[in-house]
Amino acid sequence: MSAHPKRELPHNLGSVDQVPVGEGRAFGVEGEQVAVFRLRDGSLRALSAVCPHKGGPIADGTIDQQVVMCPLHQNAFELDTGCSTTGAEPLQAYNVEIDAERNIILQMTERSVGN
């Protein structure tokens, strides 16, 4: 929950190879926990890493092209927006991409509407 707008600051999280295809890994960025997922089409998505339901580790979830399912009670969240498709509170979604050096570049500005 952040009322104050964040600066658009790119963070280089290092090589994309840290995240296996089809899985997620958690990173600590500016004191926040961010789960970065590498989809099977090669693109990345980033969401806040702690499930709003009961604190489950989102990076351990199972994903497809649309959603990540929390491993604890199977709430699902859209990878694009962080919105839950199962009625849970939303996760924060962040912009993330791969740069020319194949590094993960994360923007800490929130792109979802969760507040």
């Binding site: 963070h11 280089n12 999280l13 290092g14 840290q18 890994r25 958690a26 990173f27 600590g28 960025v29 500016e30 926990q33 890493a49 702690v50 604190g55």
Partner: peptide, 9 residues
């Protein structure tokens, strides 16, 4: 959410 997480390099 533990501190041992890999932090941003």
């Amino acid at each position: 959410p533990l501190t041992v997480l890999p932090q941003v390099p």
